[in-house]
Simulated scan of single mutants.
Amino acid sequence: MTTTEVAEKLVQYCREGQHTQAIDELYADNIVSREPKGSPMELTEGKEAVKGKTEYWYASVQEVHSGEVSDPVVTGNFFAVTMDMDVTYKEGGRMPMNEVAVYEVKDGKIIAEQFFYNMG
C-alpha cells in the first residue's frame, strides 16, 4: 500500500472505532509510538505493546461523547491527522482532547507514530 492508502485506511478505521483492527493490519511489528514528554506512555515499542496501550486507554474511558478524525495530509512517507474527542474518563471526569497525530510509513506499514497534545 502507498502512504496515501495507509493514511486513508487508518482514518476509516479510526472513524469506525476499529483501532485494534487498524493496528493489526496497518502497523509494522517494530512500530514506535511516542506521546508527549512526561506522559505515562511516553514511549511504546512493538505492535503488541501499542495494542496494549490502546486497550488500556479504552478501559479507562467511561463514555465517548463525540470524536472526529480529519482527512489525512500526506507528504512523502508521512501523514498527519487531527483528532478531536470529548471523553468522560472513569477517573478524572469529562475532558475534551485535541491532538495532532503524525505517522511514518515504510513498505506499506506504519513504523512510527507521534501524538501532540496538551496534558492536564
Rank of each mutant, 00 (worst) to 15 (best):
M83S: 14
E68N: 10
P96L: 06
A59Q: 15
S39H: 12
E8Y: 02
G52A: 04
Q18T: 10
K53F: 15
T75R: 11
E48N: 11
E45R: 13
G52L: 06
K90E: 15
G17T: 06
V81M: 12
D84C: 12
V105A: 00
A49K: 08
K47I: 06
A59V: 01
E25P: 13
G67F: 00
M119F: 09
T20G: 03
V81F: 07
K9S: 14
P36Q: 05
A112V: 02
I110T: 10
N77F: 03
Q21D: 07
E113H: 14
V6F: 07
I111F: 00
S39V: 05
Q18H: 09
P36G: 13
V73G: 05
T44K: 08
N98A: 14
G38E: 08
E91I: 14
G76E: 11
V11R: 03
K47C: 04
M85H: 03
G46I: 06
L26C: 12
Q21Y: 15
D107G: 08
K47Y: 00
E68D: 11
N30M: 01
T88I: 04
K37I: 12
R34D: 04
A59I: 04
E42A: 02
T4F: 01
N118D: 15
M1Q: 04
M95T: 14
E113S: 10
D86Q: 08
S66M: 01
Y103E: 06
G52H: 02
T54Q: 13
M119N: 12
A49G: 01
T4G: 09
A101G: 12
N118C: 13
G46T: 02
